[in-house]
Nucleic acid binder design. Structure first.
Length: 547
RNA sequence: GGCCUGUUGGUGAAGUGGUUAACACGCCGCCCUCUCAAGGCGAUAUUCAUGGGUUCAAGUCCCAUACAGGUCACCA
């Protein structure tokens, strides 16, 4: 009896691994081209964290003329979520993020879903079995628990290794006999490593990290016949010819296992880049952004808010490469695709997720769009999230476009819109349907003097056809007549001589129309709103504050 | 507990032995201005976690301590 017998008993119907080596030849790419992959497990939807990692995968592959593919890691059937796979694929499609190869588009190195690669993993497991580099382990759950308890008591390292690995040196005959009896088992690696030895991970982002060599006899094939993450990683990334494994840094500590697995299998070890996660502050503790706990993690959160995908992308680019933001400001006409991302500019520690920063990026983004563009996108957004607003704007494009154009086509446009929902927020008062719904819109407003003259102003002075200059001259003239100072200095010198200054006068008009002390350029607002409606609003205003 | 990583202003951060310690967000002040936003000017770190050391020179290198994070599954 020898290892071959054991291997054939366990995997009788599996082809030789050399078949796969031939089937998946080295990729024909130019020097320096990176092959990367994004490899999620299908446990839910695409979230900020996935986007963050996949961003690096995609950018780096594209900018080196390489290949980026999507691989679904569904070897844990317990965690399986209904529609997990299609969910992820749809999310990426909706975000207009495309991979060169993957479950839907195919490619020469598939299948791209791990559960469909069972035979491949088993073939390589059989190879290791034959070579005596792996073995069946019959330890029961209780046995493993017992080992751990003893280890804890003795304060030694926890795990299945060395002398604790009781089935490691079980004679082949006995193993075969046990299997024939029907004893349940799994396949473990017979680790050739020693804990005392040091290995070095030369990480593309974090630099050199020294770690002890792996000596754990880790599981490679589970009782359901599927591989563990570690084993699948080695086999897949070898066969798919990944050059750079880009993944979350929670994997750093399993690097010794992975390096050993590649070596035992006779594979070339790929390069690794461990990305620090996006983190969030909860009270005083900082933790990884969680797709379960944090609303900011869900892409739908931004969609509901009306933040465009491009902005999410810009934010991710900003966090991903420390120099991107500065570059982007200096090159306003360029896009993310023009920037060259590098590993050494990626953050080593975790970066705190900052919604405020995202909003600021969004405002800059919006300030570069045309009014028509914003209108169209807002319409689309409102159709999905705000039917009331949709109905108001769908048939009167010109009106909203005119509003959006206020102070837009200038060298330094306004930056007060950071999302599609901000559009309504910004201009709601320009829609009587919305305004009339507000109960007592002027309840915070009061004046130390009678402002009834404002009606007179609108009836007798205000004219829609005036130019901005004429309009303001008339405002000044009128305000002066009513006892307001028309220049700031004059007022500052002698405030008691006046009812207020010109700003106070304008504020009455502004508050009347918008209920607020802040708004875009008033001349434009008044003109767009229209004199007839203004006269009605004035009545409403005066009635309300004179109550 | 073992192994690994990180700690620079209110926040995110640049920084790889010699700089006035970038930049961005925020906040504050002034200017401009009908308001706000934008813009302009300026302020915002006596302690680059703490303590030692190496060096002519240390945020940058070494050691210790503290704190934070990751990881030690038939989960990925």
């Amino acid at each position: 009896m020898n290892y071959d017998d054991l291997a054939n008993l366990i995997f009788p119907d599996v082809v030789d691994s050399s078949v796969y080596e031939e089937k998946y030849p080295k990729r024909n790419l130019k020097e320096g081209a990176m092959v990367t992959r994004f490899a999620p497990s299908p446990t839910g939807f695409v979230h900020m964290g996935s986007l963050y990692t996949s961003f690096a995968d995609i950018r780096l592959a594209r900018q080196t003329g390489g290949v980026v593919y999507l691989r679904i890691e569904d070897t844990d059937q317990k965690r399986e979520v209904e529609d997990g796979i299609t969910g992820i694929i749809n999310d990426f499609n909706n975000l207009k993020i495309y991979f060169d190869e993957g479950p839907t588009q195919g490619g020469g190195y598939g299948p791209y879903i791990q559960s469909e690669r069972k035979d491949i993993y088993q073939s390589f497991a059989k190879k290791l079995l034959k070579e005596g580099k792996a073995y069946p382990c019959f330890a029961t759950e209780e046995e493993l628990k017992e080992i751990r308890e003893i280890q804890e008591k003795k304060k030694s390292r926890i795990g299945y290794y060395g002398r604790w690995a009781k089935y490691r040196d079980l004679p082949v005959e006995e193993a075969i006999a046990k299997i024939k009896e029907g004893t349940p088992y799994i396949i473990r690696l017979k680790s050739p490593g020693k804990f005392e030895n040091k290995i070095v991970l030369d990480d593309c982002i974090k630099g050199k990290i020294e770690m002890p060599e792996n000596d754990m006899d880790i599981v490679i094939i589970k009782s359901d016949g599927l591989p563990t993450y570690h084993f699948a990683h080695a086999v897949d990334d070898h066969l798919m010819h990944t050059t750079h494994v880009i993944r979350g840094d929670e994997w750093v500590s399993s690097y010794p296992i992975h390096k050993q697995l590649f070596e035992v299998l006779g594979f070339e070890v790929p390069k690794y880049a461990h990305i620090a996660p996006l983190t969030i502050k909860e009270g005083n503790t900082i933790r990884k952004l969680s797709k379960r706990k944090d609303k900011e993690s869900a892409i739908s959160f931004y969609h509901k808010l009306g933040v465009p995908n491009e902005v999410i992308n810009l934010y991710i680019a900003t966090v991903n490469n420390s120099n991107f933001e500065e570059w982007y400001v200096e090159h306003p006409d360029k896009t993310i695709d023009d920037y060259e991302f590098t590993f050494d500019k990626m953050p080593v520690g975790g970066s705190l997720f900052d919604l405020e920063k995202l909003q600021s990026i969004s405002k800059i983004y919006f300030s570069k769009l045309t009014a028509v563009d914003i209108y169209n996108r807002t319409l689309e957004y409102a159709k999905q999230y705000d039917m009331e607003f949709y109905d108001l704007i769908k048939d009167d494009k010109d009106y909203l476009v005119a509003l959006l154009n206020i102070e837009r086509n200038v060298e330094r446009p306004r930056m007060d819109i950071g999302s599609y929902s901000d559009v309504k927020e910004q201009f709601w008062y320009m829609y009587d349907e919305l305004f009339n719904k507000v109960e007592d819109p002027y309840k915070e407003v009061s004046y130390p003097y009678d402002v009834s003259f404002i009606k007179d102003y609108f009836i007798n002075v205000y004219r829609e056809e005036d130019t901005e200059e004429d309009w303001f001259n008339k405002v000044k003239e009128y305000a002066k007549d009513k006892g307001f100072a028309i220049n700031r200095k004059e007022y500052k010198e002698n405030p008691s001589n006046f009812l207020g200054n010109i700003a106070d006068f304008c504020s009455i008009i502004r508050v009347m129309l918008t209920t607020s002390n802040t708004s875009p350029n008033m001349y434009d607002l008044l003109k767009i709103y229209g004199k007839d409606k203004l006269l009605k609003r004035v009545d409403l205003f005066l009635d309300s504050i004179n109550k």
